[in-house]
Simulated scan of single mutants.
Amino acid sequence: MTGRTAATATPTATPGDVAARATAGFRQRYGVQPAGRWAAPGRVNLIGEHTDYNDGFVLPFALPLRTVVAAAPRDDERWTVWSELSSDPVEFGPAEVDEPGRVTGWAAYVAGVVWSLRAAGQAVPGARLAVASDVPVGSGLSSSAAVEAAVLAALVELGGLDLPTDRWPRLAQRAENGYVGAPTGIMDQSAVIRGRAGHALFLDCRSEEVEQIPFDLDSAGLAVLVVDSRAPHRHADGEYAARRASCEEAARILGVPALRDVTVAELDAALGKLPDGETRRRVRHVVTENQRVLDAVELLRAGRVRDTGPLLTASHASMRDDFEITVPEVDTAVDAALAAGAYGARMTGGGFGGCVLALVDADRAPAVADAVTTAYAERGFAAPGTLTVLPADGAARLG
């Protein structure tokens, strides 16, 4: 995990530089070569925000930006992890692992994975690990899920654990929920583990069934421009938890297991049963956002990539007006991208800062990025980071 973000860059699909940094860090810290290196990507969510914990639908894809873990087993039941975020390694054993919250800071994500595996009855091997990353922290690109997935992949292989990949997302999510204490849904971990180049991952967050949806931007002459708003996250954790609680209470009032069970056709009747305008707005966002995901999937199945643009923009308006999770920086980025010719644009991630994505013609990406940068300067905002991306593969061992 690192705060490094390209200012205007097109990352490649190979995490060679990151892998070299992880390997060098491992050698410098432990004095030996690692047994292997495992990588996991960041992710952006094309559409489907705050639907995951409502048992709904999401459509993320994996990024070419990667977190790499270099690792080797050790003989005792202890774990030592070093990150380029910190000069000092963190070491912990079963006593610290088995008490959620005992390990804090960035190392909690590593301890959480060990805790989750042990709670699932797995014999987790002791290990030395070194972490390097090009997934920027705090920008809504799932840097934490990338760490969890890369560590999980390393420990599964080092320990010869019998764990099929389709079980990994839930284990990684439990690490973040149960050990770190972050109330995330299953989307981030699913995307970084099960992503595939040239595809978006259509995930049913209730059944955890996935479908790889063709999202071949390159052949269509398109790209996704990602804008790191550089906006400080304003009360993000508390506001995220408040919205989740509001959705769960609304589902209870409506007598459904989750808001996913309310359809667009039933929306007006459902809204009439809710006690206040704020709750009605929250529900309207979730119900309409689920439908936008389903509509986007149908368009992509038909090869109509450009036609998904208006759905992205409608999603942003819903997050801004109904779920109320945007900030001026992300609204400015969306407006500027659309004015510069993007087919659609929206905030991606939990909100209150983070990133914006815009669907653009590949050859127009620099001009759209410049337009966003100019709009930021006119508003007196700190300059954004921008990069263009194509869908990449999920977690894997590096050769």
Rank of each mutant, 00 (worst) to 15 (best):
T184N: 12
G16I: 14
A108V: 09
R29E: 14
A130C: 14
T373G: 12
A9G: 13
S190K: 02
R282T: 12
Q122D: 06
Q28H: 15
A172S: 01
A20P: 15
D204A: 10
G353W: 00
F61R: 14
A375G: 13
R282N: 12
F381N: 13
S315L: 15
V305F: 07
R292V: 09
D98R: 06
Q173G: 08
V114M: 02
F26A: 06
T184F: 15
G126F: 00
G303Q: 07
W106V: 03
T14A: 06
D204M: 05
A371F: 10
G16E: 07
V389L: 15
R78I: 13
G56C: 02
V81P: 06
R4M: 13
Q28W: 05
R320K: 08
A13W: 07
V44W: 00
T263E: 03
T14M: 15
V226M: 02
D295M: 13
R37D: 06
R364W: 06
G31P: 13
A13T: 13
F323H: 05
A130L: 02
H233T: 00
F26R: 02
T279L: 04
R102C: 09
L158C: 15
P164Y: 04
A336C: 09
V224R: 07
G351I: 10
G349Y: 04
R66G: 09
A119H: 12
A270V: 01
G277F: 08
E324R: 10
Q33H: 09
R102V: 09
E208L: 11
H233Y: 05
A127W: 00
I213Y: 09
T374R: 13
L141A: 10
N45D: 15
T332Q: 12
A337C: 04
Y53T: 06
D166F: 02
P169T: 01
A231E: 03
V327M: 06
P125V: 08
R284H: 03
L117S: 01
T326R: 13
G238H: 01
V356Y: 02
G112P: 01
M1R: 14
R102G: 03
R4T: 10
S133D: 04
A258K: 10
D331R: 03
G399V: 12
S229A: 03
V131G: 08
G195Y: 04
G25D: 11
R252D: 05
K273R: 07
L46F: 14
A245K: 13
A119W: 07
L271P: 14
P15W: 03
L390I: 07
A149P: 03
